[in-house]
Computed example of a mutant assay.
Amino acid sequence: MRIIKNTLFLILIFIIPSCYAQKEIKEYYYQIGKKKEVSVYKYVDKNNPKNIEYWKVTTDPKTNTILTESYTTDFRLYNIFEEQLNTKGAEVIRYADFEQSDDGQNIRVNGIIVDKNVYKWVDHNKYKYSINYKSPRYGNGQMIKARTKNKYENIEVYGTKYATVKFMDEYEIKYLENGQNYDFYQFTYYAKGIGMVKYQRYHPDGTTIELELKDILTEKEFYTISKKNSK
């Protein structure tokens, strides 16, 4: 009887920390509330304040999905990324890029999802998501993003202190028709109850982009400033 009790005790020792780790890291990702909500994250490049991105994040508890629509400084939609949350983490279910034609029109390029793993609640190993697509300008291509948990870190962004979990993200973009590859990497920081607050992206030519969360706007505020600046 004592052997059984000791065995059960050892099992609990391993199960409890694992469950806690799963809950803990999940709290750093974008949160889904009890009703559908839209928030617009304004990111500013620390190395070039004129470089601004707006990520319109829509969370829906009915479908357990997160839709992110990304806009450039001049409010041009350039990417759609939709994820679904499950017991293991966040998986991409829809992806599209938008290329700008010579006459300024947005051309939608729908991606075909190959690998789905965006953000795992429990995994210290490398995981990835990958997208195949056909670009009008560059032909058939593939984008692969591999992610590895790095560490927990306290950072400060625009005067606000955040407790974050930090990831190492490795990107590979393949142009299949001409055999060219483009690789870069970044460190991505997620804060509890908020989602991504910063990334540091390093390109092979030596340039660095450091997007930092400056503000979180309402959908109405975003619409107002986009209309004002598009005139």
Rank of each mutant, 00 (worst) to 15 (best):
P17L: 06
Y54Q: 01
S230F: 09
T65V: 05
D123M: 06
Y133H: 01
G33M: 08
S135K: 08
K62I: 15
L67R: 04
Y185P: 07
K149H: 13
I16V: 05
K23Y: 11
Q84W: 11
I144L: 02
T73H: 07
G159S: 12
E221L: 01
G193W: 09
Q200W: 14
P49V: 10
E91P: 03
L211T: 04
K149L: 14
C19R: 04
Y189Q: 02
Y182T: 03
F184R: 02
K62C: 11
S130N: 00
A21H: 06
N125Q: 12
K166H: 07
L211D: 00
T207H: 09
Y190M: 12
N86V: 05
N110F: 01
W121T: 10
R201T: 04
D115T: 01
F222D: 01
D205N: 03
F14V: 15
Y127H: 13
P49M: 06
T7G: 11
Y95T: 05
V197M: 06
N181P: 05
Y175C: 15
N117P: 04
A96C: 04
E37N: 14
K26E: 07
I194K: 01
Y202I: 12
W55I: 05
I11G: 04
D115W: 01
K198I: 00
C19S: 09
K192L: 10
E53M: 07
A96R: 08
D97E: 14
F14C: 13
Y185Q: 09
E212C: 15
N125R: 11
I209T: 08
N154V: 15
T208N: 12
R137D: 10
K166W: 08
E69T: 05
V57D: 08
I80W: 03
V118D: 12
E210Y: 10
D74Y: 04
Y158P: 00
I144A: 01
T224V: 14
K46N: 14
K227V: 12
K56W: 02
Y133M: 07
N150Q: 06
K151T: 14
S226E: 03
Y41K: 04
Q142V: 06
L10Y: 13
Y29I: 10
D97C: 04
K120V: 03
T87S: 15
T7M: 13
T58L: 12
A163P: 04
Y223A: 15
L10C: 14
E27W: 08
Y20V: 14
V157E: 11
Y119H: 13
S226R: 15
L213E: 02
I11P: 04
K214H: 11
E91F: 02
N86E: 07
I16F: 02
G111C: 00
P49L: 09
N51F: 10
D183V: 15
T207Q: 10
Q31V: 11
Y158F: 06
S226H: 09
V40A: 04
C19I: 10
L176D: 01
T58W: 09
F75V: 00
I4E: 10
N132W: 06
S70P: 05
